[in-house]
Simulated scan of single mutants.
Amino acid sequence: MTETFQILIADDHPLVRGALKQALSTELDNVTVYEAGSLFEAIEQIEAHKGDIDLVLLDLHMPGMNGFTGLFTLRASYPDIPVSIVSASQELPVVRRSIEYGASAFVPKSAPVDQIGLAVKTVLDGGMWMPDWAREAMENGPADDEANGLAEKIGQLTPQQLRVLNMLTEGKLNKQIAYELDVTEATVKAHVSAILRKLSVHSRTQAVIIARELQLQEPAIEA
């Protein structure tokens, strides 16, 4: 009996989701695809199909992501679900950080259908995938100690602490954060204190500076 894979495509462009869905249907014998247009919707879908999602195909540039913060949030919240980045960016630092921050694959949106299929199959089999040029550059180039150090620090934060850090980056006050998360201000203060301790900083401003290292510029649009 053929195994059915359940895959979530999280991208805010319906045409991209459609193309990826078609690629998955072509390359996999039996697949069920769910869709989301934001990080919030992605989490809703994972919660709705708790324990059933085998893989998330994640766009770095969609509502709620705030750069790599969304990747950290998914990995912290659902460590058993592999995440593959599917991005229009093809810059080596973006590929490197995606992998070092917990992604199981990095797939350019311009990749041919068979490569997308190979990447997905590799991750579903428990492996890791990236384009050959990126793999060679990462194997032959120097290690990114800064990215590794940042990943280690951010990786200590709980999903709720990541949400609080994200809101601090947006300039929100404790009162606003408490309202949005439906918790007390005392709880927010406790989260902030834990964030400062885990990031080895002494102020909210320093924490925000570190968090902004996770943000990304939108990829250039080709004419």
Rank of each mutant, 00 (worst) to 15 (best):
M1D: 13
Q161H: 13
W133I: 15
A223M: 05
S110F: 00
A220F: 12
S200K: 14
M167A: 13
P108A: 01
T205L: 10
P82W: 06
G67N: 04
S38L: 09
L28V: 09
L92C: 06
K21T: 12
I81Q: 05
S77D: 06
R212K: 15
Y179T: 13
S84H: 00
A186Y: 07
A10R: 08
V33E: 06
F68V: 04
A10Q: 00
M1F: 14
A220G: 04
L60R: 04
L165S: 13
I7E: 11
M1C: 12
L124M: 07
K189D: 09
P159M: 03
V83S: 10
Q215T: 13
Q156A: 08
A211Q: 02
A134E: 06
P14S: 06
S110V: 02
L74M: 13
R75W: 02
T26A: 12
S104D: 14
D144Q: 07
A19N: 09
M65T: 07
D132R: 03
D59G: 12
L58S: 00
I7D: 05
I53Q: 02
E27F: 03
G149Y: 10
T158P: 01
L214P: 15
A105D: 02
T187L: 11
T169V: 11
H49A: 09
L214H: 13
L157Y: 10
L124Q: 03
E44M: 11
E185A: 09
T2Q: 12
P112Y: 09
R96D: 12
D182G: 13
S84E: 05
S89N: 02
N166G: 12
V16I: 15
S87K: 07
A137Y: 02
G64W: 05
V192P: 01
G149D: 11
I81G: 06
S89D: 00
A207N: 09
R75C: 12
A105T: 02
A10C: 04
A143Y: 05
L214N: 14
Q156V: 06
E47A: 14
V208H: 08
R212Q: 15
A105E: 02
V31Y: 10
V164A: 13
L214C: 12
V86L: 06
N140Q: 14
E35T: 02
P112H: 10
D132Y: 09
I9Y: 11
P93N: 02
I195S: 03
